[in-house]
Design a protein around this nucleic acid. Sequence first.
DNA 1: GTTAGCACTCAAAATATTGGAGTGCTAACA
DNA 2: TGTTAGCACTCCAATATTTTGAGTGCTAAC
Lengths: 343, 343
Amino acid sequence: MELDQRKVVILTTIIKNYLETGEPVGSRTISKYSGLNLSSATIRNEMSDLEEMGYILQPHTSAGRIPSDKGYRFYVDQLMETHQHEIDDVKTEMFEKVDRLETTLKTLVKNLAQNTNYAAVVTGPSIRTNKIKFIQTSLVDSKRLLLVIMMQGNIVKTATVLLDGSEELDFNRVLSINMLLNDELSGLSVEDITEGRLAQLLARTNHKETIKAIVSSIVDVLDIKFGDSQIYTSGATNIFKYPELTESGNASKLISAFETKDELAALVKGAEEQGEGKRPIQVYIGNESPLQNMTDCSVVTASYELGNGLKGTIGVIGPKRMDYEKVLEILSKLQSEMDQAFQ
Amino acid sequence: MELDQRKVVILTTIIKNYLETGEPVGSRTISKYSGLNLSSATIRNEMSDLEEMGYILQPHTSAGRIPSDKGYRFYVDQLMETHQHEIDDVKTEMFEKVDRLETTLKTLVKNLAQNTNYAAVVTGPSIRTNKIKFIQTSLVDSKRLLLVIMMQGNIVKTATVLLDGSEELDFNRVLSINMLLNDELSGLSVEDITEGRLAQLLARTNHKETIKAIVSSIVDVLDIKFGDSQIYTSGATNIFKYPELTESGNASKLISAFETKDELAALVKGAEEQGEGKRPIQVYIGNESPLQNMTDCSVVTASYELGNGLKGTIGVIGPKRMDYEKVLEILSKLQSEMDQAFQ
DNA sequence: GTTAGCACTCAAAATATTGGAGTGCTAACA
DNA sequence: TGTTAGCACTCCAATATTTTGAGTGCTAAC
């Protein structure tokens, strides 16, 4: 059977109506609001076809129809096509002005949740692949060094290094240690710091224990697991606004996912791994999402890039009957706002 | 009427039973489990008295009794008295070994939530009153300085200072700026950095613009509002385990409080402001808590101190029928564990 | 002072009743 | 051949009704 123009109109009407009301849509409603001037009986015939083709389904025999995942998918694809140019327009790059990256991301995710009324998640760029710009240590007391690492994108990490006290340090020695560290390690990412590198470093110094302790601290600080603390969320409670997500007692699981963030990491990592050729905005409907708990949800993700290869993801999580049009639009807007924030 | 020994036993039995089951307790149950060897009829008489005295109440005419806030209060006070010595035992001080304070607090709050099965909140020590240990700036590029501030308790804060480029800097000049800053500002808290101080500082340097920018950054970083990002929470979803908190649709509000953390700040601030003479562990039952949304909850808070005046609070939030005994115990244990973590 | 006994209460669970939106099918119509 | 009116049928959801049982208060006897 073919999906002719009329069927498309009916399907779209069903979906739009269902997005608004959340109630199954009956033939009479379509008859009135589709603008097709057909009787409910005719619509019923068409709906029967659409159901057979898998675009809509009946919750029970004597109810109206609701969109199936396939139906949503059709609708969203259509939407993406018409919005394509708009999306391409905002595919701007965000440059290196990430002084207050953390603050910005927090604000971003909050705005996103408030504007959409869905739950929002934003990841900061992964620092595992990010490169060290410079390293600086300074003496706190006889057994303690303060370690400061600046990464590309001006992301700063600090740690305190505990020394065993076997090697005496003073201002000048610390200075030379700093020079050595920068000479050997700047420009590298954590992944580049191998055993070989370390050996090479140790060959050039008398303060072997100190250097060992410092390098181990560096690895410690930078080698955090993906998703450890780099994920910001907001508006998790928005899911209470959508009964289909909370009844059946799934609210607890969903909220819990937002609290622990582990699962969100998987979600968002998937989005990031999308190959280069893909669209910068992705929509996952129901089971298309990689997460179990989220079969009743849709997820829209957009990836951003801060120039120099630092990538992150913005995501919106809501019910399947999400206002896709609005979400796509807002994601675009926020991308450009983020852009401005870093001017 | 007097609260004689027998009434106390009955009241305690009612409360303990209710804590376990969450169901109203009837006279027959008491008759069987109180160990008093009294018939249910006698118990009924006593219960009638207890109700008149306000310690228990009936949800409806033909139901058993549940403890009133006054009843809980009596029970908790009794508990606090018997546990007093134990609580005093763990009133240990935590010294300055707060290298990974943030990590520790996060772990702490997670443990707390998991062990109690209630929601948990922990605040880090306020840095507004914390004193600067030393300050270090370094040149990132011609328009940017990296600012590192170490506070008492080895808490490190960083920021990037944007310069207008009007004053040229080099390694040696930055060095002298660092010396000047430390000379003038170390030992002070943000609250101590007044206009007068700034003037005094400016009088001693040629790099007035740079110093202004730096000091303004320092104040920016340290002068965060109470509760801004210093509050760690965990186990908010535990409230789903207690129907009395989720039915009536309050779940959303409670979870929301945990998400925004604003209200938690108030809660915890209240606990911290308890005068010196007070107990280190406080229990708020129902309306005793300063928060609106929490009239169905009880809150147990304990304050800790990291020596040198750095104070914070640990809190557990659960239903009124919380296992107070266990919570009090766990709070004590965690205090001492925290102690060990900083050995 | 304590207790057995009894009538009474009332929420919650189980069951029955009803209403109405929606469907599929058939037969008539343009 | 596509469209439509009409009708019998389905079934959820809301409402009403009944049943159940735990619990109470009161009274009279021990």
